[in-house]
Simulated scan of single mutants.
Amino acid sequence: MKDKMVSVIIPMYNVADYIEQCLTSILTQSYSNIELILIDDGSTDDTLNIAEIITKDSNNTKIYSIVNQGPAYARNLGIEASKGEYIMFVDSDDYLSEEAIETLLKIITENNCLLALGRTLRTDGYKNWSVPSHHKYQVTSVDGVKNIAEHTELFYSIGPAAKLYHHSLLDNNFFDSSLNFAEDQLFVLKTYLRSNKIAVTHEAIYFYRVRGKENQSLTQLYQKNTIENLKNILAIINDAYNMITIEKNYTVEEKKIMYLGYINRLTEIELRVLFKANYRESGVKQATFFNIVLEKILLGSEPFILLFSESANFKKYIFFELQSFYFLIRRPALPVYYLLIENITKLQNDSSQSTFLNKIQRIQKHRIQEFYLKIFTCCSYFIKRLGRRIK
């Protein structure tokens, strides 16, 4: 096993406070046959200088310094530069357990797999805790071998970290640098689809840093720029559907199960947050957001019809909240809001339709009552003021 080289790819951007712990965790691994590839993505702090000092005695480290082009471009550069039989990605503000690479390499070779996945813990630098969705869906709770068609809970670990990839999974598989949000999901999806067996361990091997509000990572800022991020997510949904559909190693039913499993995860984790963020936007931005979603329904595109009609999490979270949070919809967005609710409702089964339509009628009735109440309140106020002046 020790003859197998592992290339560890780390894109870096303004992480001077964290890069030492990250690199030290790589350089002190129990497994030593490691190629370390660092790509400084145009840092404006001391990240590059610190990285050079820490790795100065390492004989198998490559450092690239490029103009800022985003993590996808940096990871792709790392893939092209790598020589290892296996590849691992680590974010520059995170770190590994001491035996992370040895553990993953052991289970990937023993089970004759192309992909291995370990447990991720969140950390703030003082304490560690489980990733809520990983714990909820038991992503890595039990050691063993899984495949994505039967274990769609693996989609809740759709980031590139905490995994060891055989280099063959990366052939003609790159990160989409045109996306600035969730750019890594299609990459991981393709590796899942190409792996008929995925080795899983419950051992914690990866520590994902949760930063404070004043120094948040890109991932923790994804709920901002809601309209642009919504467009990215919808593009990813369409690409994911096409990617799954063209796979030849799965049945039609398995493809549908995988697609619904993926969009259930996407709905619960990303799409739901974007909808919630939109409720805090201005009326014009709310209307633009709803119009983008409505357009997908009216076009009748299969990926989105399945999302709106058969995704359990879309109904459970977004559609329910879309109706429940009606009082947060600003007046300029109300017409398209009602149209969106109406068109999503039409895609539901008969029993759901009557329930949802009744709820919409109650919402509209309540809106009318609110309107007349405001008029009554204003009139009462002015009548009182007028009465005081007459006296």
Rank of each mutant, 00 (worst) to 15 (best):
F319T: 05
L334A: 04
S311C: 15
L334M: 13
I341H: 03
N313V: 00
E310R: 11
Y338L: 11
S324I: 07
N313K: 13
F314M: 05
L328A: 15
Y317N: 03
F325E: 00
K316A: 01
R331E: 12
Y326C: 01
E310F: 10
F320C: 02
L340I: 09
Y338N: 04
P332E: 10
R330A: 04
F327Y: 09
A312C: 09
N313Q: 15
Q323N: 11
L340C: 05
I341Y: 11
L339E: 05
K316Y: 07
N313R: 08
I341C: 13
E321S: 00
I329K: 12
S311I: 14
P332H: 04
L322E: 08
I318C: 07
K315C: 10
Y337H: 01
F319E: 01
Y337A: 04
F327K: 14
L340V: 12
F319K: 04
F327R: 15
S324R: 10
A333H: 10
L339Y: 12
P335I: 12
P335G: 15
L322W: 02
Y326R: 00
V336L: 09
Y317S: 04
K315D: 03
P332S: 06
S311E: 03
K315M: 09
F327G: 08
F325P: 00
E321D: 04
F325A: 11
I329W: 10
I341K: 14
L322G: 08
F314Y: 15
L339C: 05
L339N: 07
Y337G: 00
S324Y: 13
P332L: 05
Y337F: 05
S324N: 08
L328E: 15
A312T: 00
L322A: 07
K316S: 12
F314V: 05
L334P: 07
F325C: 01
L328I: 10
K315V: 02
Y326Q: 03
V336D: 12
R331Y: 06
Y338Q: 10
E310G: 01
N313M: 13
E321H: 01
P335W: 15
L322M: 13
L322R: 02
E310D: 15
E310C: 05
Q323I: 06
A312R: 09
F327E: 14
K315H: 10
P335N: 15
S311K: 11
I329C: 12
I329M: 07
Q323A: 01
F314E: 02
Q323S: 05
L328V: 05
A333C: 00
R330M: 06
R331M: 12
L328R: 14
I318E: 13
Y337S: 00
R330Q: 14
Y338R: 03
K315Q: 07
L339G: 02
K316W: 08
V336S: 08
S324F: 07
S324Q: 07
Q323F: 06
L339V: 05
L339W: 03
E310A: 08
I329H: 02
F327P: 07
V336A: 13
L340H: 02
F325N: 09
